[in-house]
Design a protein around this nucleic acid. Structure first.
Length: 228
DNA sequence: GGTTGATCATTG
DNA sequence: CAATGATCAACC
């Protein structure tokens, strides 16, 4: 017999990771926080990453400071995703920062977006604001890799968006571009600036951006999971 | 400022 | 009332 406890080190196999994630299904975040020695905030206004950090800790991902996948040895990225009572995503999913310079010759096959999404452990978590964070429950995890169709959808959006960046049109990009992948600000605030290519090819300073998966895309992944 | 983890809150 | 644009925290 063993009590439920956070993995004290990175999982050494996919089985160990998935088993641990499945053990968390049905548990309340407050209970998991207590068992992990973490406090539980009354809301997520000032703790937006709290759920993600909590699950990282339970699954043995070294919290937050990695350049690559959460489980580099397994080639797996961990994503918690807030869902409503019907299992539909409540928020878009951040993928990675959008590179605004040094993009000459970059292709989809070796892009950061494709690498990040090659294998993802989705952990749904109740996310409605009417439920206090401590009472939100973890759902059934799903280990996912993009199908050919999904990879193609992502590639088309990525190419359109990267073309705009390379052509100096980054400030014309809005969250409406892309069917399943979008670019939106990703910064501490609207005063944060980073270098990019201007409309005449000159260096400009602009808001840092990130790639996000739109809810139609992640919703389809989760829906297929429920149907199977 | 840039990375990690994301959700908030104003707007259409 | 969903979605876009803005923002919060910790670590380095």
């Amino acid at each position: 017999m063993s009590v439920l406890r956070p993995l004290p080190h990175p999982p050494s196999s996919e089985l160990e990771l998935v088993n641990q994630a499945q053990q968390l299904a049905g548990m309340a975040l407050g209970e998991l926080a207590t068992l992990a020695g973490m406090s539980t905030p009354p809301n997520l206004k000032r703790d937006k990453g709290w759920t993600g950090v909590l699950l990282e800790r339970w699954l043995g991902a070294s919290a937050g400071s990695k350049p690559e996948q959460d489980f580099a040895n397994l080639g797996i990225e961990l994503k918690t995703i807030p869902i409503d009572a019907q299992g539909r995503p409540l928020e878009t999913t951040f993928v990675c920062v959008a590179p605004l310079t040094g993009n000459t010759g970059v292709v989809w096959e070796t892009s950061h977006v494709r690498h990040k999404l090659h294998r993802v452990l989705w952990v749904p978590v109740e996310g409605e604001r009417s439920i206090p964070p401590g009472e939100r429950r973890v759902g059934t995890p799903l280990l996912w890799s993009p199908s050919e169709e999904e990879d193609d959808q992502l590639r088309r959006d990525w190419e359109e968006l990267m073309d705009m960046i390379v052509l100096g049109q980054v400030e014309r990009i809005t969250a409406r571009h892309g069917e399943v992948l979008q670019i939106r600000p990703k910064a501490a605030n609207s005063k944060a600036l980073t270098e990019a290519i201007g409309e005449n090819g000159q260096p400009i300073m602009t808001l840092p951006r990130g790639f996000y998966l739109k809810k139609n895309f992640t919703g389809a992944i989760l829906a297929r999971h429920f149907m199977l």
